[in-house]
Design a protein around this nucleic acid. Sequence first.
DNA 1: GAATTTGGTTGACATGGTGTAAAGTTGACA
DNA 2: TGTCAACTTTACACCATGTCAACCAAATTC
Lengths: 195, 195
Amino acid sequence: MSSENSETRKKILETTWKLLESGGPSAVRMSDIARSTGISRQAVYLHFPSRAELLIATTRYLDEVKDVDARLEASRSAASGLERLDAYIEAWGNYIPEVYGVARALVAMQETDEAARVAWKDRMDAVRHGCEAAVAALRKDGALSKDLTAREATDLLASLLSIEQWAQLREHGGWSQPRYITLMQRTARLSLCAK
Amino acid sequence: MSSENSETRKKILETTWKLLESGGPSAVRMSDIARSTGISRQAVYLHFPSRAELLIATTRYLDEVKDVDARLEASRSAASGLERLDAYIEAWGNYIPEVYGVARALVAMQETDEAARVAWKDRMDAVRHGCEAAVAALRKDGALSKDLTAREATDLLASLLSIEQWAQLREHGGWSQPRYITLMQRTARLSLCAK
DNA sequence: GAATTTGGTTGACATGGTGTAAAGTTGACA
DNA sequence: TGTCAACTTTACACCATGTCAACCAAATTC
């Protein structure tokens, strides 16, 4: 599968990302990626065993380039549970648009490809984990609503912050990104916190 | 495309529905549908021009058989806006599980098929319309939160009640159906209504 | 009773995407 | 000079959708 840090490999990942990002309605095919990268279709398979693996590698590449970890880290240092919740929503919410194109392609592959399913689940588990931590912080402050178990609060928050939700509100609803952040923070606060 | 009310046509729709409902991870192919119906693959094309059209027809068939309209109608007669909101969430929320299999297949086709995209959009617009009415009822009571425009409240409610959201909470979160309804009613109330 | 229509059947085939395989090219490096 | 790695070209297997054509049998109609 060639060296992990090949120049071409990186170019393929970049191209894949760009193509998915500028995602028209048509699917991005292996041949599209190859052509845009300026190599043969076969050469793509020299670096990635399948389309699913390429998509998965692209999400990982993005996480690395965009440094998700550092960005989500910020929320951990918040003083109160409530601030932490706000910070987390802001950090994650602002990360979504940067990976949406790739995420969408990965979701589309879920039905047909097991590896894609697992990769997507892993990703969502990571978000869920962040939500869990935010809920735990709320709870520690005694700010968590009595109507919900910690588990339920986590589930609710995670689904509120899901990429599908973001897409629907931004694309169909036409919400601006700042408005999305504001209203999500508001909704989360109202539905998770004790009055 | 043969007569609209053929016996075989109905059998195909029933089979498609059953197969999608019992949806394992594998996609339901035209040949699967044909075999399960007990006819040849070609015969399916005698009734439906394409897989997308078959899926679309299946959703329509379900709407008819399950009588969505009547079920959603119930919420219209509610006395207050709040009751109406609750009733709508209950009616729609309990309809979701009955159409989920088909909905999922239709969503999966969105990326590749224009007709599927339009069909899905129509469906979602119908839900949105119901949400709009519920929000209008709230507003008339003066119960709508001042933080949200009617438009925003509608968007928020529609995305809260989206099928993806339901799937995530039920499948990943493991929420029971009654719990889903209860917590969605609670979340909607808290995030849409004035205090 | 013969002809036609309806709703199927079988089999072959085009199309379009993924993924595999094999042989050839090119440039760097030892 | 030889070898290795990255890439190219060409060909092909596989699989799902959708099309086409010829044929068949039962019911309907003239």
